[in-house]
């Protein structure tokens, strides 16, 4: 099998590409079967070998006993990175992260921004808002590209 994002050869059971970090079956730029690039983003079959291209959602791997699955997987349709940035950067720090699936991180960011923001007499508040907004934008952009993120991944 090849990665749908970068074309690297992978084990058939691979969940995450070791080269680009994306979910192999989500990407449709490269053929999963022959690994060759398909220029047309709307193509549903590979023009080189005729195999169906990726683009489907890979279900999260089943949680193993005693282990927690802390990955956040891309949603369909993907959340808009700019809107997520505005929500976290303008409305409340952490809201964008919570909507994206990083609930724990978003909640902590929300509490920290309120405590630090009010504690500093709102002097630090704009800095926290901008950091939270940029973080939400970049995390949403990774998910939009089909790359799963961990609960506590930043930027």
């Amino acid at each position: 099998m090849h990665c749908g994002h970068c074309g690297s050869q992978l084990a058939p059971q691979a969940v995450v590409c070791v080269t680009c970090g994306g979910m192999p079956r989500v990407g449709r730029r490269f053929c999963l079967n022959c690994g060759k690039e398909n220029a047309n983003p709307q193509a549903v079959v590979c023009v080189h070998c005729g195999a169906a291209l990726g683009g489907g959602m890979m279900p999260p791997p089943p949680p193993q006993p005693g282990m927690t699955n802390d990955y956040v997987y891309p949603s369909t349709p993907a959340r808009d990175p700019v809107l997520m940035g505005v929500l976290s950067g303008c409305l409340l720090a952490g809201i964008g992260q919570i909507i994206l699936g990083q609930q724990n991180k978003g909640l902590v960011m929300l509490i920290v921004s309120v405590v630090v923001g009010l504690g500093s007499g709102l002097i630090l508040a704009p800095v926290l808002w901008v950091i939270a907004g940029i973080d939400a934008y970049l995390i949403a952009q990774k998910l939009q590209r089909g790359i799963p993120v961990r609960q506590w991944d930043f930027f």
Partner: peptide, 20 residues
Amino acid sequence: DGFGAALLMLVFVFGVTHFL
């Protein structure tokens, strides 16, 4: 992506300027 990022940056620049 560049157009989206530029809009987000405008939000931050206008917001912080307004706040100050």
